Simulated assay, not measured.
Amino acid sequence: MQHLIRGAALGAVVALLAMPAAAQTITLRAATIAPKTSIYNTAIAIPFAAYVDKLTDGKVKIDVQEGGVLAPIFKIFEAVEDGRADMAIGPASFLGGKDPTNLMIGSFPTGLGVDSIIPWMYNGGGEKLLQEHRRATMKMHTMVMGAGPSEVFAHSHKPIRTVEDLKGLKFRTLGNWAAIMKDGFGAAPVVVPGSELYSMLEKKAIDATEYSMPSENKALGFQEVAKYVIMPGIHAGSWTFEAAMMGDKWDKIPKDLQDKIHLAAKLVTFESLNSIIMQDFAALDTLLGGKNEVIILDETFKRKAKEAARKWAADAAAKAKAEGNPWPERVSKSIFDFQDRWAKYSPYLVVDHQSDFTKK
């Protein structure tokens, strides 16, 4: 009997030692670009963390840190590279213009609209290009994670109805739109942080500003200090965020968990676009019912802006190619070919759209 007991005990020990160790929880610290109460976190980063937790049964945790905690907001990708953060959640444009690709792939002035941005990303090769670019140039793995609708073109002290109205205008903006406005239309772009915009607009240190969607702009109160609200935001007709981390760290995550993280990102991309639009509708109820004068940019303005934007892209791509960087040409061609094809075949689609707001 004793030898049977000893044998059973020995077998139990051997079986226990042969069992794989319980999988450790993977925690990823995510650097973001805004306060936790911002729509960029409440509609994108925080839901992403919740979906990842749910889909992976708690095996992966995304620790969302608000903008400025792990790194300055324009340095979130750099923070991933140097280890201060495990993941960057934000727009490609925050990488700056050293590589023009980053000023094209997540959003481009007069580029893809709310209806076409997600089809291009997931079915037209956009996300694949983004991932190839990050691996090749930054050794990162990334995924599209979050999308949003058109921004407000401007809150302005002066009316803007034609491109000629941009000449000499002290217009706060960023990135390639600043260059397009300056070189194409003689505007005087001013680059300042979003935290300073209300004060500068109130003091008329700037004539006009773009910042974000109606819901975000309304919360900041720009409509209180500038008479004109100008739409649509053709400088940012639609946009996407990405969730990026170093490739070697991503590659160590088990494949089944990688797939679930990707699924969480895709769910958030679809849901964030829809939820932000509905929040914008609520904000527009207030903006349209207030004392502001709303100006809708006409087709001539849009056409001239599109011509100037595509010229900027062609010039930037040619310069980059001459310097050995093929990515701006590849990305801009993909975007513009898809946009032109979408425009060509879109008349068959029934779209609930009107060219101006209904006057009460």
Rank of each mutant, 00 (worst) to 15 (best):
K291S: 14
L349P: 01
L17G: 06
A322P: 05
W120H: 15
T37M: 03
A8I: 14
N41Y: 12
E164A: 12
S238F: 10
G11A: 05
K304M: 09
H235S: 08
L130T: 14
K75T: 02
K54N: 07
A313M: 09
D165Q: 08
V144G: 03
E164Y: 07
F270Y: 15
P35C: 00
A282L: 03
A12P: 00
T240N: 12
A226F: 08
K333R: 15
I234V: 15
E196V: 00
S150R: 13
H235L: 10
E210W: 14
A219S: 12
N176E: 06
A317T: 05
D86G: 08
I206D: 06
L28R: 07
A283T: 02
F185W: 14
G68H: 08
N41R: 11
K218Y: 02
Q65R: 14
M200H: 05
T37G: 01
D99S: 11
K75A: 01
R84P: 00
D86K: 06
K306S: 08
A88Y: 05
A314G: 03
I26S: 03
F338R: 12
G168N: 04
A43I: 09
A314F: 08
I277A: 03
M145G: 00
D259I: 01
L273H: 07
A244E: 09
K170H: 15
P193D: 09
T42I: 01
F336S: 02
S150K: 08
M138K: 15
L16R: 12
A320G: 03
E132Q: 15
E299I: 01
T209K: 12
F74S: 07
K167V: 06
A219W: 10
I234G: 01
A320S: 14
A18C: 09
E202R: 15
A49W: 08
I276W: 09
I206K: 10
V351Q: 09
A236R: 15
V14R: 09
P20T: 07
I296W: 01
A318V: 04
W250F: 06
I277K: 11
F338L: 05
H157G: 04
L220S: 01
T142G: 03
P232V: 11
I335D: 01
N123I: 03
W239I: 13
V192T: 13
F241C: 11
A308C: 04
P326C: 06
Y40F: 13
D86F: 06
E81K: 14
M200V: 02
D63K: 08
M181H: 05
T269Q: 02
E210R: 15
G11I: 05
A283D: 02
W342F: 14
G83V: 13
E293T: 10
P328V: 06
L349T: 07
L287F: 00
S38C: 01
E299Y: 04
S38Q: 09
R172T: 12
K252M: 11
A219T: 12
Y40S: 09
T32M: 05
K360G: 02
S238V: 13
I89M: 09
E224V: 05
